[in-house]
């Protein structure tokens, strides 16, 4: 599902990633871990096309993101769900509207959007909260809304950048349980985190980075 061949990323003289070669199979769950500045977020950003590798080849679902045009980028992202540490929800939109956004951009019918939103809110444990506004929810609930938005269009890949970074222990576990459940349904999940406790509790493959190099896979 994801293949990187000698991928490198430089920002001027700074090497964010160096010579990364890795493969991730369909339906796999893995952590991207390492200290701050190790290159975790850079790798995820490259996977969803926010930045491009300066060297190497990076294939996501068979698409080379290094050669992807700006016009084609939205179509790659429609197959990738993304969850951020800061949730990235639109405060002036209801939970339902936030979750439905990923379907709205696809041009789905209102009826389908309503049905899918309701279904994924059930999956993330927020049934009947569609008409609430994000600021009225707790951090854990907001992150679950973000996860619901990421999976509403049934993507084949879910990328999560420090999804539990802003959450306390119990809430972090709840979110990880949801991510695990999503993975069990066949979605490839990649979680960037440096929370060793969480990685021990939910043991999966680890891609450990240090100073931009992949030191453990």
């Amino acid at each position: 599902m994801i293949r990187a061949y000698h991928v490198a990323k430089r920002y001027g003289d700074v090497h964010a990633l160096r010579d990364v070669t890795v493969k991730l199979a369909k339906g796999e769950f893995c952590y991207v871990t390492g200290p701050s500045g190790a290159g975790k977020t850079t790798l995820l950003k490259m996977l969803y096309g926010s930045t491009q590798p300066t060297e190497g080849k990076l294939l996501v679902g068979g698409i080379d993101v290094a050669r992807l045009s700006r016009r084609r980028l939205p179509y790659l992202r429609r197959n990738i769900g993304i969850v951020f540490q800061d949730f990235k929800l639109i405060d002036s939109r209801t939970v339902g509207e936030n979750v439905g956004l990923a379907l709205e951009v696809l041009g789905s019918s209102r009826d389908l959007i309503n049905r899918r939103v309701s279904a994924v809110l059930n999956i993330v444990g927020l049934p009947g909260r569609g008409s609430d506004y994000p600021p009225t929810l707790s951090g854990g609930e907001q992150q679950r809304v973000a996860v619901a938005r990421a999976i509403v269009n049934d993507p084949s890949i879910l990328l999560a950048d420090e999804p539990t970074g802003n959450l306390d222990g119990a809430m972090a576990i709840e979110v990880m349980e949801i991510l695990r459940a999503i993975n069990l349904r066949g979605t490839t999940v990649m979680v960037a985190t440096h929370d060793t406790g969480l990685m021990n509790r939910f043991p999966y493959r680890k891609l450990r980075f240090e100073a931009g190099r992949l030191v453990e896979s």
């Binding site: 790659l76 992202r77 993304i82 990235k88 639109i90 002036s92 939109r93 956004l101 951009v105 938005r149």
Partner: peptide
């Protein structure tokens, strides 16, 4: 800005 960036992240085209 925030809303438009989120739209881009979930796959909105420039036209949308």
């Amino acid at each position: 800005k925030n809303e438009l960036e989120i739209q881009k992240l979930v796959g909105a085209t420039d036209g949308y």
